[in-house]
Design a protein around this nucleic acid. Structure first.
Lengths: 150, 150
DNA sequence: GTGATTGCAAAGCGTTTGCACCGTA
DNA sequence: TACGGTGCAAACGCTTTGCAATCAC
Protein backbone atom coordinates (compact mmCIF):
# COMPACT_ATOMS: atom_id res chain seq x y z
CA UNK A 1 0.00 0.00 0.00
CA UNK A 2 2.11 2.80 -1.31
CA UNK A 3 0.62 6.25 -1.66
CA UNK A 4 1.03 8.47 -4.66
CA UNK A 5 3.93 10.65 -3.65
CA UNK A 6 5.97 7.84 -2.16
CA UNK A 7 5.22 5.73 -5.22
CA UNK A 8 6.34 8.49 -7.52
CA UNK A 9 9.63 8.93 -5.68
CA UNK A 10 10.22 5.19 -5.68
CA UNK A 11 9.67 4.97 -9.44
CA UNK A 12 12.10 7.79 -9.97
CA UNK A 13 14.67 5.96 -7.90
CA UNK A 14 13.98 2.80 -9.84
CA UNK A 15 14.20 4.39 -13.24
CA UNK A 16 17.50 5.93 -12.19
CA UNK A 17 18.83 2.43 -11.77
CA UNK A 18 18.46 2.02 -8.03
CA UNK A 19 16.88 -0.97 -6.38
CA UNK A 20 13.86 -0.70 -4.17
CA UNK A 21 14.57 -1.97 -0.70
CA UNK A 22 12.97 -1.85 2.70
CA UNK A 23 15.27 0.75 4.23
CA UNK A 24 14.97 2.92 1.16
CA UNK A 25 11.20 2.71 1.12
CA UNK A 26 11.04 3.61 4.76
CA UNK A 27 13.16 6.75 4.46
CA UNK A 28 11.41 7.86 1.28
CA UNK A 29 8.01 7.50 2.85
CA UNK A 30 8.94 9.56 5.89
CA UNK A 31 10.47 12.38 3.86
CA UNK A 32 7.70 12.44 1.30
CA UNK A 33 5.18 13.19 4.01
CA UNK A 34 6.96 15.29 6.55
CA UNK A 35 5.70 18.80 7.14
CA UNK A 36 8.93 19.60 8.92
CA UNK A 37 12.50 19.57 7.76
CA UNK A 38 14.21 16.52 9.22
CA UNK A 39 17.84 15.74 9.90
CA UNK A 40 19.39 12.37 9.17
CA UNK A 41 19.23 11.50 12.86
CA UNK A 42 15.56 12.45 13.11
CA UNK A 43 14.69 10.37 10.08
CA UNK A 44 16.63 7.49 11.56
CA UNK A 45 14.76 7.71 14.84
CA UNK A 46 11.39 7.59 13.15
CA UNK A 47 12.31 4.98 10.58
CA UNK A 48 13.96 2.79 13.15
CA UNK A 49 10.61 2.15 14.82
CA UNK A 50 9.05 0.65 11.72
CA UNK A 51 12.24 -0.95 10.53
CA UNK A 52 14.35 -1.94 13.54
CA UNK A 53 17.35 -3.27 11.66
CA UNK A 54 17.77 -0.01 9.74
CA UNK A 55 21.17 1.61 9.97
CA UNK A 56 21.86 5.33 10.09
CA UNK A 57 24.18 4.85 7.15
CA UNK A 58 21.30 3.88 4.90
CA UNK A 59 19.55 7.08 5.80
CA UNK A 60 22.55 9.09 4.64
CA UNK A 61 22.85 7.09 1.46
CA UNK A 62 19.19 7.53 0.62
CA UNK A 63 19.32 11.26 1.34
CA UNK A 64 22.20 11.53 -1.09
CA UNK A 65 20.20 9.92 -3.87
CA UNK A 66 17.02 11.88 -3.19
CA UNK A 67 18.93 15.13 -3.20
CA UNK A 68 20.64 14.22 -6.47
CA UNK A 69 17.21 13.64 -8.02
CA UNK A 70 16.00 16.98 -6.59
CA UNK A 71 13.24 15.25 -4.70
CA UNK A 72 14.36 16.81 -1.44
CA UNK A 73 16.23 19.97 -0.59
CA UNK A 74 18.22 21.29 2.31
CA UNK A 75 16.65 23.76 4.69
CA UNK A 76 18.99 26.37 6.07
CA UNK A 77 18.42 27.66 9.56
CA UNK A 78 20.45 30.19 11.46
CA UNK A 79 22.78 27.62 12.91
CA UNK A 80 22.86 24.77 10.46
CA UNK A 81 21.81 23.42 7.14
CA UNK A 82 21.52 19.73 7.79
CA UNK A 83 17.78 19.23 7.58
CA UNK A 84 15.86 18.14 4.51
CA UNK A 85 12.36 18.70 3.26
CA UNK A 86 10.48 17.42 0.24
CA UNK A 87 11.34 19.76 -2.63
CA UNK A 88 8.62 21.98 -4.08
CA UNK A 89 7.43 21.10 -7.56
CA UNK A 90 7.47 24.55 -9.14
CA UNK A 91 9.36 27.70 -8.38
CA UNK A 92 8.63 28.17 -4.75
CA UNK A 93 10.35 29.38 -1.63
CA UNK A 94 10.42 28.25 1.95
CA UNK A 95 8.45 29.57 4.85
CA UNK A 96 9.73 28.09 8.09
CA UNK A 97 8.00 28.19 11.47
CA UNK A 98 10.56 29.07 14.09
CA UNK A 99 8.51 27.54 16.86
CA UNK A 100 7.37 24.15 15.58
CA UNK A 101 9.70 23.76 12.63
CA UNK A 102 6.92 23.30 10.11
CA UNK A 103 7.82 24.22 6.56
CA UNK A 104 5.47 25.66 3.93
CA UNK A 105 6.08 26.95 0.45
CA UNK A 106 5.02 30.08 -1.34
CA UNK A 107 5.30 31.38 -4.87
CA UNK A 108 7.78 34.16 -5.14
CA UNK A 109 8.35 35.25 -8.66
CA UNK A 110 8.25 38.99 -8.35
CA UNK A 111 11.88 39.27 -7.47
CA UNK A 112 12.51 40.08 -11.09
CA UNK A 113 12.57 43.83 -10.58
CA UNK A 114 14.84 43.53 -7.62
CA UNK A 115 17.18 41.19 -9.44
CA UNK A 116 17.33 43.50 -12.46
CA UNK A 117 18.17 46.43 -10.27
CA UNK A 118 20.85 44.55 -8.37
CA UNK A 119 22.45 43.30 -11.58
CA UNK A 120 22.62 46.82 -12.95
CA UNK A 121 24.10 48.25 -9.81
CA UNK A 122 26.54 45.52 -8.93
CA UNK A 123 27.67 44.28 -12.29
CA UNK A 124 26.92 40.74 -11.20
CA UNK A 125 25.06 38.22 -13.30
CA UNK A 126 22.48 36.80 -10.95
CA UNK A 127 21.84 33.14 -11.65
CA UNK A 128 19.91 31.99 -8.68
CA UNK A 129 18.04 33.39 -5.74
CA UNK A 130 17.33 31.99 -2.41
CA UNK A 131 14.54 33.40 -0.38
CA UNK A 132 13.37 32.08 2.91
CA UNK A 133 10.88 33.57 5.32
CA UNK A 134 10.99 32.76 9.00
CA UNK A 135 8.19 33.30 11.47
CA UNK A 136 5.35 31.62 13.27
CA UNK A 137 2.75 29.38 11.66
CA UNK A 138 -0.94 29.91 12.32
CA UNK A 139 -1.08 27.32 15.07
CA UNK A 140 1.96 28.56 16.93
CA UNK A 141 0.75 32.17 16.75
CA UNK A 142 -2.42 31.31 18.60
CA UNK A 143 -1.30 28.54 20.82
CA UNK A 144 1.64 30.19 22.45
CA UNK A 145 3.09 26.77 21.83
CA UNK A 146 6.42 26.09 23.40
CA UNK A 147 9.43 26.12 21.13
CA UNK A 148 9.95 22.94 19.22
CA UNK A 149 12.46 20.91 21.14
CA UNK A 150 15.41 19.20 19.60
CA UNK B 1 48.81 50.95 12.91
CA UNK B 2 45.21 49.89 13.07
CA UNK B 3 42.80 50.95 10.38
CA UNK B 4 39.35 52.31 11.03
CA UNK B 5 37.22 49.24 10.66
CA UNK B 6 39.56 46.97 12.59
CA UNK B 7 39.88 49.64 15.26
CA UNK B 8 36.14 49.95 15.54
CA UNK B 9 35.69 46.21 15.97
CA UNK B 10 38.45 46.09 18.56
CA UNK B 11 36.85 48.87 20.59
CA UNK B 12 33.56 47.06 20.49
CA UNK B 13 35.26 43.94 21.77
CA UNK B 14 36.97 45.95 24.46
CA UNK B 15 33.85 47.74 25.61
CA UNK B 16 32.13 44.38 25.83
CA UNK B 17 34.70 43.38 28.43
CA UNK B 18 37.09 41.41 26.26
CA UNK B 19 40.81 41.90 26.25
CA UNK B 20 42.75 42.87 23.17
CA UNK B 21 45.35 40.29 22.29
CA UNK B 22 47.51 39.38 19.35
CA UNK B 23 45.48 36.42 18.12
CA UNK B 24 42.29 38.38 18.44
CA UNK B 25 43.65 41.35 16.57
CA UNK B 26 44.86 39.13 13.81
CA UNK B 27 41.54 37.37 13.23
CA UNK B 28 39.58 40.61 13.49
CA UNK B 29 41.79 42.32 10.96
CA UNK B 30 41.41 39.51 8.42
CA UNK B 31 37.65 39.33 8.74
CA UNK B 32 37.16 43.08 8.71
CA UNK B 33 38.78 43.30 5.32
CA UNK B 34 37.85 40.13 3.51
CA UNK B 35 35.75 40.44 0.38
CA UNK B 36 35.04 36.73 0.58
CA UNK B 37 33.32 34.66 3.20
CA UNK B 38 35.94 32.70 5.12
CA UNK B 39 35.76 29.52 7.13
CA UNK B 40 37.55 29.07 10.43
CA UNK B 41 40.21 26.99 8.71
CA UNK B 42 40.77 29.60 6.01
CA UNK B 43 41.12 32.34 8.58
CA UNK B 44 43.53 30.18 10.51
CA UNK B 45 45.68 29.58 7.45
CA UNK B 46 45.98 33.27 6.68
CA UNK B 47 46.41 34.39 10.27
CA UNK B 48 48.94 31.70 10.98
CA UNK B 49 51.41 33.32 8.58
CA UNK B 50 51.48 36.59 10.47
CA UNK B 51 51.10 34.99 13.87
CA UNK B 52 52.76 31.57 13.84
CA UNK B 53 51.87 30.53 17.37
CA UNK B 54 48.17 31.11 16.74
CA UNK B 55 45.90 28.16 17.47
CA UNK B 56 42.81 27.22 15.52
CA UNK B 57 40.91 27.29 18.78
CA UNK B 58 41.42 31.02 19.13
CA UNK B 59 39.91 31.52 15.71
CA UNK B 60 36.77 29.72 16.79
CA UNK B 61 36.60 31.64 20.03
CA UNK B 62 37.00 34.97 18.28
CA UNK B 63 34.38 34.08 15.67
CA UNK B 64 31.99 33.32 18.48
CA UNK B 65 32.45 36.75 20.01
CA UNK B 66 32.28 38.63 16.73
CA UNK B 67 29.09 36.85 15.79
CA UNK B 68 27.57 37.62 19.19
CA UNK B 69 28.32 41.30 18.60
CA UNK B 70 26.79 41.04 15.09
CA UNK B 71 30.02 42.21 13.52
CA UNK B 72 30.12 39.17 11.28
CA UNK B 73 27.46 36.87 9.88
CA UNK B 74 27.30 33.41 8.43
CA UNK B 75 27.10 32.92 4.71
CA UNK B 76 25.06 29.98 3.53
CA UNK B 77 26.10 28.15 0.41
CA UNK B 78 24.47 25.14 -1.17
CA UNK B 79 26.51 22.69 0.82
CA UNK B 80 27.40 24.39 4.04
CA UNK B 81 27.00 27.40 6.24
CA UNK B 82 30.34 27.58 7.93
CA UNK B 83 31.83 30.68 6.35
CA UNK B 84 31.70 34.17 7.79
CA UNK B 85 31.71 37.63 6.31
CA UNK B 86 31.73 41.08 7.84
CA UNK B 87 28.11 41.95 8.58
CA UNK B 88 26.41 44.77 6.66
CA UNK B 89 25.63 47.92 8.59
CA UNK B 90 22.04 48.49 7.51
CA UNK B 91 19.34 46.21 6.21
CA UNK B 92 21.09 44.51 3.36
CA UNK B 93 21.25 41.14 1.72
CA UNK B 94 24.01 39.01 0.32
CA UNK B 95 25.09 38.64 -3.26
CA UNK B 96 27.59 35.81 -3.59
CA UNK B 97 29.80 35.09 -6.57
CA UNK B 98 29.70 31.40 -7.29
CA UNK B 99 33.00 31.49 -9.12
CA UNK B 100 35.37 33.48 -6.93
CA UNK B 101 33.42 33.49 -3.69
CA UNK B 102 33.31 37.25 -3.42
CA UNK B 103 30.43 38.63 -1.39
CA UNK B 104 28.64 41.93 -1.97
CA UNK B 105 25.61 43.45 -0.35
CA UNK B 106 22.49 45.07 -1.72
CA UNK B 107 19.51 46.87 -0.27
CA UNK B 108 16.38 44.83 -0.46
CA UNK B 109 13.48 46.40 1.28
CA UNK B 110 10.73 45.93 -1.22
CA UNK B 111 9.81 42.51 0.01
CA UNK B 112 7.06 44.11 2.02
CA UNK B 113 4.36 43.40 -0.52
CA UNK B 114 5.46 39.85 -0.91
CA UNK B 115 5.61 39.31 2.82
CA UNK B 116 2.14 40.79 3.28
CA UNK B 117 0.73 38.53 0.65
CA UNK B 118 2.39 35.45 2.06
CA UNK B 119 1.17 36.23 5.56
CA UNK B 120 -2.38 36.58 4.34
CA UNK B 121 -2.31 33.39 2.37
CA UNK B 122 -0.43 31.18 4.78
CA UNK B 123 -1.60 32.41 8.14
CA UNK B 124 2.01 32.69 9.27
CA UNK B 125 3.41 35.68 11.06
CA UNK B 126 6.59 36.46 9.17
CA UNK B 127 9.29 37.74 11.47
CA UNK B 128 12.39 37.61 9.39
CA UNK B 129 13.46 37.17 5.82
CA UNK B 130 16.54 35.86 4.30
CA UNK B 131 17.40 36.67 0.76
CA UNK B 132 20.56 35.71 -0.98
CA UNK B 133 21.43 36.05 -4.64
CA UNK B 134 23.97 33.80 -6.27
CA UNK B 135 25.71 34.43 -9.56
CA UNK B 136 28.87 35.75 -11.14
CA UNK B 137 30.58 38.99 -10.22
CA UNK B 138 31.65 41.45 -12.91
CA UNK B 139 35.17 40.13 -13.07
CA UNK B 140 34.24 36.48 -13.30
CA UNK B 141 31.64 37.21 -16.00
CA UNK B 142 34.27 38.63 -18.28
CA UNK B 143 37.30 36.70 -17.33
CA UNK B 144 35.92 33.23 -17.71
CA UNK B 145 37.87 32.83 -14.53
CA UNK B 146 38.23 29.31 -13.25
CA UNK B 147 36.08 28.33 -10.33
CA UNK B 148 37.44 29.41 -7.02
CA UNK B 149 39.39 26.51 -5.62
CA UNK B 150 39.09 25.23 -2.11
C1' DG C 1 23.44 -15.70 -10.11
C1' DT C 2 25.17 -11.13 -9.95
C1' DG C 3 25.93 -6.87 -8.52
C1' DA C 4 23.85 -3.31 -5.75
C1' DT C 5 22.58 -2.53 -0.92
C1' DT C 6 22.91 -3.39 3.74
C1' DG C 7 24.60 -2.76 8.76
C1' DC C 8 28.55 -2.70 11.46
C1' DA C 9 32.77 -0.85 12.92
C1' DA C 10 36.29 2.16 12.15
C1' DA C 11 38.05 6.19 10.17
C1' DG C 12 37.65 11.01 9.17
C1' DC C 13 36.71 15.66 9.83
C1' DG C 14 35.38 19.96 11.89
C1' DT C 15 34.31 21.83 16.29
C1' DT C 16 34.29 22.10 21.37
C1' DT C 17 36.12 21.31 25.99
C1' DG C 18 39.57 20.64 29.93
C1' DC C 19 43.60 22.27 31.49
C1' DA C 20 47.89 24.48 32.92
C1' DC C 21 50.45 28.39 31.46
C1' DC C 22 50.62 33.18 29.89
C1' DG C 23 49.55 38.10 29.08
C1' DT C 24 46.41 42.14 29.43
C1' DA C 25 44.62 45.48 32.16
C1' DT D 1 47.82 40.80 40.95
C1' DA D 2 43.75 38.81 39.05
C1' DC D 3 41.47 36.80 35.74
C1' DG D 4 40.49 36.34 30.91
C1' DG D 5 42.91 34.41 26.94
C1' DT D 6 46.01 31.08 25.01
C1' DG D 7 47.61 26.67 22.71
C1' DC D 8 47.71 21.86 23.21
C1' DA D 9 45.58 17.52 23.45
C1' DA D 10 41.71 14.99 24.05
C1' DA D 11 36.87 14.52 23.54
C1' DC D 12 32.95 14.97 20.86
C1' DG D 13 29.33 14.50 17.26
C1' DC D 14 28.20 14.01 12.73
C1' DT D 15 29.27 11.98 8.33
C1' DT D 16 31.81 8.91 5.29
C1' DT D 17 34.31 4.72 4.11
C1' DG D 18 35.83 -0.36 4.08
C1' DC D 19 34.01 -4.67 4.30
C1' DA D 20 31.63 -9.13 4.39
C1' DA D 21 26.96 -10.70 4.42
C1' DT D 22 22.50 -10.06 2.28
C1' DC D 23 18.92 -9.11 -0.95
C1' DA D 24 16.51 -7.26 -5.27
C1' DC D 25 16.21 -8.22 -9.75
Amino acid sequence: MVDEKTGNWLSQLKSSGYKLTGPRYCVVDILAHSERALTAAEIFNIAHRQYPTLGLVSVYRTLEKLEALSLIQRVHREENCHAYISAPTGHEHLLVCRSCGRVSFFEGDDLKNLVDRVELKSGYLVQEHWLQLIGLCGECRQGGVEAFSR
